[in-house]
Amino acid sequence: MDKYQINHLKELEAESIFVIREVAAQFENPVMLFSGGKDSIVMFHLALKAFYPARVPFPLLHIDTGHNFQETLDYRDQLMEKTGAKCIVRLVQDSIDKGRAQEETGINASRNKLQTVTLLDALEELKFDAAMGGGRRDEEKARAKERFFSHRDEFGQWDPKNQRPELWSLFNGRKNMGEHFRVFPISNWTEMDVWQYIYMENIELPSLYYTHEREVFERDGVLMATAPFMQLRENEKPQKMQVRCRTIGDITCTGLTLSAANSLEDIIQEVAASRITERGGRADDKRSDAAMEDRKKEGYF
């Protein structure tokens, strides 16, 4: 590399900061979605960088399914306190209580899909016109065709066949009343880029990403955490194991990996050697080949 070149991580960082600033400039009332997972943590770190020394000029929004790992919630609260950022929390339980969403039943019941209802309600209630999310195009094939600036109609839906062309770095955020945008600042990052960046920037993560002892059981070849709301089949025997999370969703859909990795270096080695994708452990994607495409059309992230 010559003296006027930057490495891939710094180039991705520059691109993402550009996108986040563009959102702050083009929209009246943007929000950044925050789940407590590594992608949204990196996205928030980029937002801190984009506006320093000023504060991040928009709030965060956490859609809480009520089935989160406690470590995720603790991390979220500590981060907000440390950075002075504001995080709005909306509960899926409230949507259920109001009859807006119907709880799934059965052994694999999850509130993953119900999040969409709570999210869309929150966007409407708080009049957000752009919601940034930590989705990456390498995660899933329906995401591979997503734009940085993704237009949503008044029902919050995504129409993959009718997306706006996106050229150079000219982002068109114009919209009619009642419509909004989803924006994905880290679209071009891969799982490996995220981990290398966390290492380069020395970003603190929830302890769940590092090895720890936890009571787990095996379902369909995937290790899941036990919790009061997790129903076990007869043959599913809980036992303690040394595990860590490769992605963090809520407990009902997050697979755990047997791992002794207790540093970022270890995790990067593990990711480099891994032969299955990070979403391979995600029960929400396994429902069908087009599970993500279908959820996205409805307004999911």
Binding site: Q196, E265, A272
Partner: peptide
């Protein structure tokens, strides 16, 4: 070795 090299890739 291997990973530190990966930190300096061109895009």
């Amino acid at each position: 070795g291997k990973n530190s090299g990966y930190l300096d890739m061109e895009l």
